[in-house]
Every structure is written in C-alpha cells, then in structure tokens.
C-alpha cells in the first residue's frame, strides 16, 4: 500500500518547476497537464493495461526484491535509496546487480527529463541547545565522514561531492536535478487534511487502482476532477 504514496513525489518532475509545491497550494493538482494528474493517469493506464502484479491489494516488500532482481518485475517507483537493496537482492538471487538501474519520471519538459531531489534526514541545531558544538560536530560528522549518503546511493548534501554511481547516467543524459521550494509545504499539508484528499496517503490511489482494474465503476476523468474539486473548494473555504 505505501508504495502508492510514492507517486505524489512526482510533484515537480513533470513540470520541471521548483515552485511545484507552491502550485499545489494555489492551483488544482489535477488540472489538465498538472504533475499529479499526469502521474495518476499513468498509474491508471498501467493498471488498465494489466502491466501490474496480479494482486495489487497486498504488498510484500521482501518478496518483491528478488522478483525485480530476476526480471519478473520491470519497474518499481522508489527513491535511489532502494537501489542498494535491490542490488543486494540481485546478488543473492544470482542475478547481475548491474541490471538494477535508476530512471527519472518518463516525462520531458522542453526535451529534458527532470528529477526532484527529496530530503532524507533533516538535521539542525536547536537554538536552545546547551551543547551546540557537540550537535554541530555530529552534523558535520554525519555529512562529511559517516558515508551515509554513499552507502545509500543518495545525493550528498556536500556541494563538491560527486553524484553516486547509480546517478552517473543522469549526468550523461543531462537529466536536470532540482530542489523544490517547500515554503508552501505546510499549507499544502493543511489543504490536504482539510479536504480529506490525502495526497500523502495511499487511500485515494488505492481507489484509483480499483477503478482502473474494474473492481469499482466510474471514469478516470470524473475521479480526478472530483479530487480537484474537493481540493480547490477547500482552498476557497480557507480563503487562499
């Protein structure tokens, strides 16, 4: 179930816009051509065409790893942190770990693929801390020396750090990596809760999957427009 929430992270990848979160707060996420509509339509089509697993209502993370390693699963929507686990599973299953690669969301803006960098751990020093130096030393150690980013094939927060190997092809193909401006993030979460849409929850996409595989009746357009309506009405009632 939780892999479905991953799809919200498409935000910014389609429009290649670092203000994508602001547009969630101020616009309709399911307007024609908007990031979420593009992703949800892709999800719908994938399910509709029967390209997903046989029983999408349950998930088994550990069992899914060897299956992608052996080629029974083609793609999974995950962050680059998952690559190392999949490669480990490939080794265990006797497959070639180099078969596991990473790709951006299949949408281009002016001929460029865009990928959004998601923060993993956010660390800061508390202004009220009595041990600011120790806290700062921990952050420095974590970012400079711990090797956490390299171990997880993640983007290092250090400016001069090289891209992890798995993202080298991004450099060659000129995939644009962008950071989203999150200044409206809290407002998006507030609208999300007030409207009970739940873009950070699996629920509405579970309904979308049910719709696509015919377990429930209805049309995709009605479904997505309904979500957009709930969202924009809540925006209006909040006076934004």
């Amino acid at each position: 179930m939780w892999p479905l929430t991953q799809w919200t992270q498409v935000n910014g990848s389609v429009s290649c816009d670092d203000q994508a979160t602001t547009r969630l707060a101020e616009g309709d996420p399911w307007a024609e051509g908007a990031d979420l509509r593009t992703a949800d339509t892709l999800l719908y089509d994938i399910v509709r065409e029967g390209l997903i697993e046989k029983h999408p209502t349950t998930t088994n993370w550990e069992a899914s790893k060897p299956r992608i390693a052996k080629g029974e699963i083609a793609t999974m929507w995950l962050g680059s942190w998952a690559v190392i686990q999949m490669q480990g599973a490939a080794k265990q299953a006797g497959a070639d770990p180099d078969d596991i690669g990473f790709m951006p969301f299949p949408a281009q803006k002016n001929g460029t693929f865009c990928a959004v960098a998601q923060p993993d751990y956010n660390q800061a020093v508390n202004i009220h801390s009595e041990h600011k130096e120790a806290a700062r030393a921990w952050i420095d150690w974590f970012t400079d020396k711990s090797g956490y980013a390299a171990d997880n094939l993640a983007l290092s927060p250090l400016k001069d750090a090289p891209l992890p190997d798995v993202l080298k092809p991004y450099e060659e193909k000129r995939v644009k990596i962008l950071d989203l401006d999150d200044s409206k993030g809290a407002q998006v979460k507030f609208i999300d809760n007030q409207s009970e849409v739940g873009i950070y929850q699996p629920d509405y996409r579970q309904d979308l999957v049910d719709l696509a595989r015919g377990a429930t009746k209805g049309s995709l357009d009605d479904f997505l427009n309904g979500l957009g309506e709930k969202w924009t009405e809540t925006q209006k009632s909040l006076g934004s």
Binding site: E196, P202, D203, Q206, D210
Partner: peptide, 24 residues
C-alpha cells in the same frame, strides 16, 4: 488486512483516519 481499501472501510476505520490521518 486491507487498511480499508477496496470498499472494506468501516465506520471506525473512517473515524480513525479522520482523527489521525487528516488531524480532524
């Protein structure tokens, strides 16, 4: 088992989601 997906949501699940998922 289903988290309330596929039309299995009960009144209590809905209430829990309102309270702890949507902070209402």
């Amino acid at each position: 088992m289903t988290g309330g997906a596929t039309g299995t949501e009960t009144f209590v699940i809905q209430t829990v989601k309102l309270a702890f998922q949507f902070n209402k």
